[in-house]
Design a protein around this nucleic acid. Structure first.
Lengths: 228, 228
DNA sequence: TGGCAGTAGAATGTGCACATTATGGCCGTA
DNA sequence: TACGGCCATAATGTGCACATTCTACTGCCA
């Protein structure tokens, strides 16, 4: 199955092993992953199409360096969708929805108590997906899942070793509380502030100097040979 | 360039030449379009990934038969985004935005007056894209463009020969009027009603018996060989 | 006559070899 | 010494041939 190659590259990106600007050569990947070049090609093409990588014709595929502007745009779209989502959940949801929401919040609390950053990182993302799923709209869920992965990619690539506390657990609990109280206005406002906080928090991570950016800037100027 | 193959297939779908359930065989397409099978393969894979076609492993790729439920879901997502869009446009837009909106409405009026259904069909879609573009969010524009093509695909496939009047021009003019008056509430409401009307109008198109559906139903039963 | 196994054909999936293009080093010249 | 053109090398792009899988027809058997 060629999905394995796709997943391997994606995982490497989420783990921050591939810095922005890195070139993903087909022969090198095929050698490392021990698969044929065609498999690698297909996986790369798919990743490019999904926005994970950038392809330059006759040059290769590269790990993109998302600008703060693009991240803001993605969060802006998320805001539009997710404020609408919580609003809709306030107008009507089934009993299992309430139960799932409470269960999720409890899991996040548990992760915080155990200081399990990795688990909390995963749960924070899943919370937003959960809200979409509770709307019962498959298209919406898929779309939001894509936006979420893309919005976190920037973070994963730039500062992966430190999982974000996201200011999340508390925000999430408040949002759930508002939904259960069927307070649409408040829920939407809380979601808006939550996402605004996230994007601001991520923006603060841009300033630290990115080594790859320097390498790109000096390519063809200084007499340094790139390591890869 | 392989984009030509991609565009050719897409155009055929939009023109309604490919009915739902039709199989797009690689050798047949390569023969018809006079390109190598690899080009066809790449184009098909891309179309599948974008949701235009459906692929069954070791079976081939087929023109999908979107259910009413899926169409409703897509319109639901569009409602979330587009009500937010008009709301945002009401809070702030530049002078060129107002000018472009007015110009578009005028073009639609002109198309109606000339009874140019084809042009009106295109303009009706472009109106929604225009609103997204005026927000200045590239991600949003791309996303909405995809949703729009997918939501109209169902229509194109099931009833392509009759371009929809969409109850559009009038609705669009009202929406623009509300935006220019900076009446966010009204604009959002009008957009909501507009999209609700569109999806209801499209739903009404499902009942008429689909010839391909019959062909599929009799496949393997009657002694008819499929034309392709 | 109805059902089923076997088989021939075609279509999809996969890997390989070649063509094309970009990159980096080398050399000649101003 | 610096600049510009040339060439070797490696990577990407493309087409082809083979392997695998599914479909459909045929013939056999109950």
């Amino acid at each position: 199955m060629d999905k394995a190659v796709y997943e391997a590259i994606r995982r490497a990106m989420l783990m921050g092993r591939l810095l922005p600007g890195t070139k993903l050569g087909e022969p090198a990947l095929a050698r490392v992953l021990k698969v044929s070049r065609e498999r690698v090609r297909k996986a790369l093409h798919r990743l490019v199409h999904e926005g994970w990588l950038e392809a330059v014709p006759n040059r290769g595929t590269f790990v993109p360096a998302l600008t703060i502007g693009e991240v803001r745009e993605i969060y802006d779209v998320r805001t539009m969708l997710e404020t609408a989502i919580v609003g809709r959940l306030c107008t009507g949801y089934g009993p299992p929805a309430a139960q799932r929401l409470k269960a999720h919040i409890n899991e996040e609390r548990l992760a915080v108590r155990n200081d399990d950053r990795g688990r909390l990182f995963g749960l924070s993302g899943e919370f937003h997906v959960l809200l979409a799923e509770l709307c019962g709209n498959e298209q919406l869920s898929k779309l939001l899942r894509g936006l979420l992965t893309r919005s976190t990619m920037h973070f994963s690539l730039s500062a992966p070793e430190r999982f974000h506390n996201c200011a999340g657990p508390h925000d999430h609990a408040d949002i759930v509380k508002a939904i259960l109280a069927r307070d649409a206005k408040k829920a939407a406002k809380l979601m808006l502030d939550h996402l605004l906080g996230l994007v601001e928090w991520q923006s603060a991570w841009q300033p630290p100097p990115n080594p790859v950016r320097l390498e790109e800037a000096f390519r063809g100027i200084a007499a340094v040979r790139r390591p890869a």
